[in-house]
Write a protein that binds this DNA or RNA. Sequence first.
DNA 1: AATGAATGAGGATTCATTCAT
DNA 2: AATGAATGAATCCTCATTCAT
Lengths: 196, 196, 196, 196
Amino acid sequence: MENRRSKREAILNSALKIFERDGFYKAKVEDIAKEANVGKGTIYEYFDSKKDLFYQMVKSMVDQYIDDIQRIAEEDIDAISKLQNIVGFHLKPNKCDGNLGYVIHVEAIKSGIGEELKLLYMGLRSRQIDLTEKIILEGIESKVFKEINAYMAAMFFIGGVHQFNIELNHIERNSDNEKNIDVEEILDTFLNGLAR
Amino acid sequence: MENRRSKREAILNSALKIFERDGFYKAKVEDIAKEANVGKGTIYEYFDSKKDLFYQMVKSMVDQYIDDIQRIAEEDIDAISKLQNIVGFHLKPNKCDGNLGYVIHVEAIKSGIGEELKLLYMGLRSRQIDLTEKIILEGIESKVFKEINAYMAAMFFIGGVHQFNIELNHIERNSDNEKNIDVEEILDTFLNGLAR
Amino acid sequence: MENRRSKREAILNSALKIFERDGFYKAKVEDIAKEANVGKGTIYEYFDSKKDLFYQMVKSMVDQYIDDIQRIAEEDIDAISKLQNIVGFHLKPNKCDGNLGYVIHVEAIKSGIGEELKLLYMGLRSRQIDLTEKIILEGIESKVFKEINAYMAAMFFIGGVHQFNIELNHIERNSDNEKNIDVEEILDTFLNGLAR
Amino acid sequence: MENRRSKREAILNSALKIFERDGFYKAKVEDIAKEANVGKGTIYEYFDSKKDLFYQMVKSMVDQYIDDIQRIAEEDIDAISKLQNIVGFHLKPNKCDGNLGYVIHVEAIKSGIGEELKLLYMGLRSRQIDLTEKIILEGIESKVFKEINAYMAAMFFIGGVHQFNIELNHIERNSDNEKNIDVEEILDTFLNGLAR
DNA sequence: AATGAATGAGGATTCATTCAT
DNA sequence: AATGAATGAATCCTCATTCAT
């Protein structure tokens, strides 16, 4: 039934919203249900438990995310453009939310939700680093980058990108001293460093 | 009584450990009490509530942390050495744990624990960025760094450092393909960038 | 429609099976529906509620049971042969299951299901005792039995028969030290007692 | 603490009362708590779960019951007197309640509560039959009883006794046509049978 | 007539907090 | 001051029942 898939989708979206707002333990299944305009029981028609719902929500996020950055990594463009696109992707609001990332991180590390979640999360991290590392290696190969430790550079890149994501989506949003942040400048900082 | 202060300290240390392991909502007051070798009721002699305990724990962490990096920032050494020390400080295990940082972030953003926590956390972030920014500005002034956007560079620096912290304390720890990460190399990546 | 009656019958049979296995409260309407190869909603086309289904199931069991032992009681044979047939009837597996009897007893005594069930059950018990008592009185009249308290003897007879039924259908079934139990011997014990 | 044991006892007594009245699934933990004049949460200080409470309650009943009939079986009196005492014991109201026996039987057979309960119950049954069988064998040895199948006789005896127990405690109690039932007469029926 | 997706009342269980000792 | 037994509010989850198709 077409309807079944769409209701599942609706629940996942509510879950995303509520889990992001409240974290796993504070979130109430009933609130997720309300948000999705379904009854409490309905959630259990589609998911085994609150934990399962969380896991499935994370899984759908992760799958989408990996898909997205993979697509960027596989484009037929130079390494710098790829990095540029990745930065751009992370600054787009709602597209990939850093706060949810923190929530997932916390629950995955605790693994009070299940070993599977931990694996999923670890997989995401290594995939993220791998892809970035590969892009950097491409850049090295094509002589655009110098012979740098690609793993380390990848870590730096991801860390920096996340920092901007959080800052923009959750911190800045509340304050008024709007700092203009643009992709070009971020990338420049990363590529050229500070040293004179 | 001297004893009173030390028991409070003991509870804060247990709280740190358990909250880091379990997050705010999963953590049980009883577990914190056990860890501190005190009775459950005793915790309420020293703290108003679980939320208060969390807040006080965060506060003591934050105060300590700001103290530490402030001390580094105020040393009479050049900007590069300061950054080096900051990186080194964050890689020292147990000294400042990235996972707890995530836990705090999540609870602070939700502010289900109280507006004060949010303020405390925001204060920490801006302080962290300010200090780093200031160090970078010092470097620019003394012509060691080029005329770069210091705010942006600070964000990148902090993001990268966190990424390494998490990777080392929580991810690597479990895997065996030990990647040697040393302060020198990290800083080099940051200072000189990738570009040829 | 002929079909309607047969579907009702199918549901009653499933109900019998599931209620016997799980008892009233543990049994799920959905399981009964599955067992009967009908939809969950269909059950409510034939029965008002789970309680009603239980009641109707018990009623159909009870009617059948009373019919059966009544037929035995009315045969044109001597009292001893009647008792023999009653024992034989209860030892036949699947014919009349002692465990369901316990389930019914429990629910009927609690009467959380309804006063009607209690009445039905009480009626069954008194009918059972009455019939047996009557057979024994026949035996006394025809000088085959002595002038014994027929009510008491009936109670003993029924109690003993139930005990064998349970033992055979639920306990023995699991163990291996098969004790041969045959109708002749049971009846002999009952008729002649232990005393030398 | 003396108090701790007595509160546990109080909860077990309430459990006995409520489980007997409602059966396992219908019984509410809250009702048991109310009956024992404790808070709902207190029950979980003494028992792991509703199932555990049921099991412990059954265990304490079973232990007491086996103790009681064992004591009777070991007295230094003749076989007939022992049987007489066993009948007397079962007719004493509140001393050993047949309805609870049914409840236990139903839950034990289903073993939805746990395999342990089943084992406990099976142990009770076999113990009950063993003891009775032994008494009968004593009687045979001392030439008071004839060379009868002792196992079968034991089954009959127990079945009859239970029947009386139920009849007296749960059925008769409600009706008015009081039938005088006394131990002597019951035993006479059992020992001498019906046959002339 | 038959279905099963949707519902929400109901109940087991957890755990922050209190308070008598 | 310190404790931990007791509590009940809060929340996950189940399942009888309804109703749109």
